[in-house]
Amino acid sequence: MTFLRPPGPIAKGLRIGLLGGSFNPAHAGHRYVAETAIKRMKLDYVWFLVSPQNPLKPTKGMAPLQARLASARAIAKGDRRLIISDLEQTIESRYTNDTVRVLKSRFPDVDFFWLMGSDNLEQFHRWQHWQDILDHLPAIVVQRPGYVLAALKAKAIQAMGYRFTVLDGRRNELSATAIRARSSEAKAGVVD
């Protein structure tokens, strides 16, 4: 690949967080992770990398990519620092490590950071070549309800804790899993 158009502004020294995921659907918890990292780590932008298909998640129940991009755009609305991208589809990347290598190669003067909620940290060691991801860029973990101890017990933290910054504060309890479950219950006529 000789040319890759950046999803947002690019300049030497910019600090850009990369928040990858299925976003099935995107929700306020995702925005909370991005805004917390922007504020506490002084990031210029956060790129939401909406994955065509997460290799660790089943395809059943996965909304089409365009619907997930639309939900991410709705969550980011009103904040120019939040950039929504289908970059992984554009570069035909299935794995975060491949995406990170392409971005670091194409935009070497940008300071990239991998962002995740602590719920993802628990299984980060299952990602393909997760150590290589951390060799290319540091990770910022924002605490999520129910996963506060993930920063202490996660295998990735135990192995490469020096590559992580863990941020704590007010926690957002929304999750895509809970949103999908409520939506299914509503369609089935189940009422609280």
Rank of each mutant, 00 (worst) to 15 (best):
R5L: 07
R5W: 01
P6K: 09
P6A: 15
P7I: 12
P7E: 14
P7L: 12
P7H: 10
G8W: 06
P9L: 04
P9M: 02
P9E: 09
P9V: 03
P9A: 08
I10V: 12
I10G: 02
I10Q: 06
I10D: 02
I10P: 04
A11D: 03
A11I: 02
A11F: 01
A11V: 08
A11Y: 05
A11M: 05
A11K: 15
A11W: 04
K12S: 15
K12F: 14
K12W: 06
G13N: 12
G13E: 11
G13T: 11
G13C: 13
G13L: 13
L14G: 05
L14W: 08
L14V: 12
R15W: 10
R15A: 15
R15V: 06
R15H: 14
R15M: 07
I16W: 13
I16K: 10
I16N: 10
I16C: 04
G17I: 02
G17W: 05
G17C: 13
G17E: 01
G17N: 11
L18Q: 12
L19K: 08
G20N: 15
G20H: 15
G20L: 15
G21M: 14
G21E: 15
G21S: 15
G21A: 14
G21L: 13
G21T: 14
S22I: 14
S22A: 15
F23T: 04
F23W: 15
N24K: 09
N24Q: 06
N24C: 03
P25Q: 03
P25V: 08
P25N: 07
P25M: 07
P25Y: 12
A26D: 04
A26L: 12
A26I: 05
H27F: 03
H27A: 00
H27K: 00
A28L: 02
A28S: 12
A28M: 06
G29M: 02
G29I: 00
G29R: 00
G29D: 03
H30A: 03
H30L: 05
H30T: 00
R31P: 02
R31E: 08
R31A: 07
R31F: 11
Y32C: 03
Y32D: 02
Y32M: 09
Y32N: 03
V33R: 01
V33A: 06
V33T: 07
A34F: 10
A34I: 02
A34N: 05
E35Q: 11
E35F: 00
E35P: 00
E35C: 02
T36Q: 01
T36C: 05
T36G: 03
T36V: 08
A37I: 07
A37V: 00
A37E: 00
A37S: 07
A37L: 05
A37Q: 04
I38G: 01
I38H: 07
I38K: 07
I38N: 02
K39R: 10
K39C: 11
K39L: 13
K39Q: 13
R40N: 06
M41Q: 07
M41R: 05
K42H: 00
K42R: 02
K42D: 10
K42N: 06
